[in-house]
Structures are given as structure tokens and as C-alpha cells.
Nucleic acid binder design. Structure first.
Length: 369
RNA sequence: GCGGAAUUGGUGAAGUGGUUAACACGCCGGAUUGUGGCUCCGGUAUGCAUGGGUUCGAUCCCCAUAUUUCGCC
């Protein structure tokens, strides 16, 4: 079945919404944070550890799985859920972000995008149709349209041409989409240009997708203001009965700000990436476990945290693991960071329910720096 | 006991008679937002074993001392 978004409550003083999304693999509550598992695994974590963190949807990536192991193999395995043993909903990114990270502007044509494989340098060509076909075979619950994710620094002229092409790509992808169990989201682009965001949102909605995302944010050194503007310029034109997904965002304060502006879904590599580099999210901001001040700190990362890492391990121990490059260090920090962001969304949902989101934000900012 | 060689930061080490002593590791920080996983960017020896001497100037030359090391007895 396609997903179904249920709007349960709109917060009185902000644009925040409380909702649920019905999926093939259960009902998830929004606003929510979705951990990223690019290569069909949330790096270092088992599905059980994700369930323990109360994670709902996770991401996988079309581009990476296309190259290895290939969508046909995943298909043979019985689809992505069976292949990776994850029994929650899965969203696949389209490979659009890799247009931004791997291709040069000259490689982007009307037909599709020429890539060089990051694995062996071989030439690849990805089109909107191909991306959707791969995602159909991967059998994720939510597929994303293949878009161009232009840098925030792109000129107005470039951005205008880009969003028009992304709209044509969205239409082409939708036309070939054929998996009845899978929903398809459209992506709003337009940088920090108000009229382009508006145009992109209105035209994308006309194509009638199962959900809408706001892309092209938090890249290329874009300022916070530009990111928040990009959301504010897009949200008014998105339908209330469909979920709204802010792509790639994940810093705690950006999640708070996104929710206030009406975002329902977030994904980000940050919790797992910074974990591998020895960092942990806390209520007081980011903590670098490698700092020498934690050498003899025998308290958990956060006393108030209910994650497996905080209930059982000390900073001194995790610091030691990270310093000697033991995998358990990155695992424990990943468990904590993912739980941290998910717990943040749980609290945000509670604040929406109680209509006290702005108070929650003030309290959050008091501690977080 | 005799003879030779060595002695540069936390470590392994490069190097030159003349402004800021290479590099690597380590250490200390920072970055990271739809993941090109295991990365990137900074900082880190006021001093070249110690004491004398030569020189305008010495880590680099000479002498002594100490330590280490190799060979011989």
C-alpha cells in the first residue's frame, strides 16, 4: 500500500504538526528523525539496536546500492527489507544528492547525469527513469524523485533552469513508477530564492506526489538563515494532508527550527558520522569524547539519556575505545547519537501536543550551545 | 682496559657555520547536515646530551665530561 499521512494536531503558536504515517511496516509518528543507512546498513548498528532507539523509518541509497550489490541482487533476496533484515519502513534516496557530490555541472544533461563511479572511476549514467526503476526493485516503502541538488551558491539563473529541469525529471520518474507498494515523493528546490521555492513547490505539488520534500539545504556552507528561509518559502504551498520532509537535516537546533516551521521528517548522516569521529550530541551541545578532560570521567555521556551506551558505559571508557580505534567506541556513540535525535523528536511531539513548542525551544536553547 | 661510532621534541628521525630546525607518528584542539565510512583542517622543539672553546655568528667545527652502542683483549 501507499503511505497515508494523518494530521492529528497543529500546534497553536507555530506551524508545527503532530501526525502519523501508516506504512507497510507499521505506523510511525511525526515529526520524526530517520537514520541514514546508505549501503543497506545504518553504519555499525543492527536493526535491533535501531528498534531499541525507537527509530521508525531509515534511509538507503539508490546510487550506492545500484553499484553494489546491484538492484537485481536485492530483488532476488526478496527486497531491501528481507535483504537487510529491517522490519521497519525504508526510504530510498534517489541518487540526486550524488549529482551534487559526485558530478560536475557539465555532466548534467536534460536526459540525465553522467557520473564517475567513486569506486572504480568507471563512467555511469543515471536518469530519472533509471533511478525510479532501481528504487522499484529495491522495494523501499518510499522512493524519492531524482532531482538535481544545486549548491546554495548557485546563481539565480542556474537555479531557475535547475528547478525547471528537476520538475521535468520528477514527471518522467512518476510516469515510470510502477511499484504499488511504494510511495513516491517530489522534491522542492530553489535555494534561498523566494520566488523559485514558491514556483518549485507549486509545480511539484501539481504533479501529485505522496509526500513532498525540501531539498538543497544544509549544503555548500549555506547559512542557517538561508536554510530557514528555504523552508519558510516552500511550506505554504505544500498540502496539509501530505508529509513534508526536510532532506539531509539533522543538527539538533535545525530539527527544532524545522519542526516549528512545519517539517514532519528529517534525515541526516550526522549522528553516525560524528560518532565515528568521536563526537556525541548532548543537551549542552556537541561533545568531543577525545578531549583530554574526559580521560578520567567515569560518568555516562549524559546522565539523563536512556540509551544503551549511557546506561552502561562511561565517557572514560568510550574515550579509550575511540582512542585505540576499537569499533565498539563508534558503535556506542552511534547508538547514543541516534537515540538523542529520536528522543528530541519525541519531546518535540509532546510539546506540539501540549501547544508549548516555543517554550520548549527556549528551554532547549538555554542549555544547547 | 683499548679503539671506534652515536647523542636533535613524547617517539622514529631529516638537516644546515648565518632570518621561522623537514617529515612522520603521537599528543592537543576543531570541522563534519538526502555519507565518495575509517576523513579533512589547525596547533604542537625559545631549542639540537652537558660544560668549555674557535668564530662577527654554532645544533652544525674543536676539546673535555656523561650516556648509549659496536669491535678487540
Amino acid at each position: 500500500m501507499k503511505i497515508k499521512y494523518n494530521l492529528l494536531h497543529e500546534e497553536k503558536n507555530t506551524k508545527a504538526r503532530l501526525g502519523t504515517i501508516e506504512t507497510n511496516y507499521g505506523i510511525v509518528e511525526t515529526p520524526m528523525f530517520m537514520p541514514v543507512g546508505t549501503r543497506a546498513t545504518v553504519k555499525m548498528l543492527t536493526p535491533e539496536e535501531l528498534y531499541d532507539a525507537n527509530s521508525g523509518v531509515i534511509l538507503a541509497n539508490t546510487y550506492h546500492l545500484w553499484l553494489r550489490p546491484g538492484e537485481d541482487l536485492v530483488d532476488k533476496a526478496g527486497g531491501l527489507h528481507k535483504f537487510m533484515n529491517y522490519h521497519g519502513p525504508i526510504l530510498t534516496d534517489s541518487g540526486g544528492f550524488q549529482v551534487f557530490s559526485l558530478a560536475k555541472p557539465k555532466d548534467i544533461t536534460e536526459e540525465g547525469v553522467h557520473f564517475k563511479s567513486h569506486i572504480d572511476g568507471s563512467k555511469l549514467f543515471l536518469t530519472p527513469e533509471k533511478s525510479i526503476e532501481i528504487q522499484n526493485k529495491l522495494d523501499s516503502d518510499i522512493a524519492m524523485s531524482f532531482d538535481e541538488c544545486p549548491p546554495a551558491s548557485a546563481s539565480y539563473e542556474y537555479m531557475k533552469n535547475s528547478i525547471e529541469r528537476t520538475l521535468r525529471w520528477a514527471k518522467r520518474g512518476k510516469d515510470v513508477h510502477s511499484n504499488p507498494r511504494q510511495s513516491l515523493f517530489g522534491i522542492v528546490q530553489g535555494g534561498a530564492y523566494e520566488d523559485l521555492r514558491k514556483f518549485s513547490a507549486i509545480e511539484t505539488v501539481k504533479l501529485d506526489f505522496d509526500g513532498y520534500s525540501i531539498g538543497g539545504v544544509a549544503n555548500d556552507g549555506e547559512s542557517k538563515e538561508d536554510m530557514y528561509h528555504a523552508i519558510d518559502y516552500s511550506i505554504p504551498y505544500l498540502p496539509k494532508d501530505k508529509p513534508r520532509y526536510l532532506m539531509g537535516v539533522g543538527e539538533p537546533r535545525d530539527i527544532v527550527e524545522g519542526v516549528i516551521r512545519g517539517i514532519d521528517m528529517f534525515d541526516c548522516v550526522l549522528p553516525t558520522r560524528i560518532a565515528r569521529h568521536g563526537n556525541a550530541f548532548t543537551r549542552h551541545g556537541k561533545l568531543n569524547i577525545k578531549n583530554s578532560k574526559y580521560k578520567e570521567d567515569f560518568t555516562p555521556i549524559e546522565e539523563s539519556c536512556d540509551c544503551y551506551a549511557c546506561k552502561n558505559y562511561t565517557k572514560a571508557y568510550i574515550r579509550h575505545l575511540v582512542n585505540v580505534d576499537e569499533a565498539l567506541g563508534g558503535r556506542l556513540l552511534s547508538i547514543h547519537n541516534i537515540r538523542f535525535l529520536i528522543r528530541l523528536t519525541e519531546e518535540l511531539r509532546e510539546a506540539i501536543k501540549e501547544d508549548c513548542l516555543l517554550e520548549y525551544r527556549d528551554k532547549f536553547y538555554q542549555d544547547y550551545h
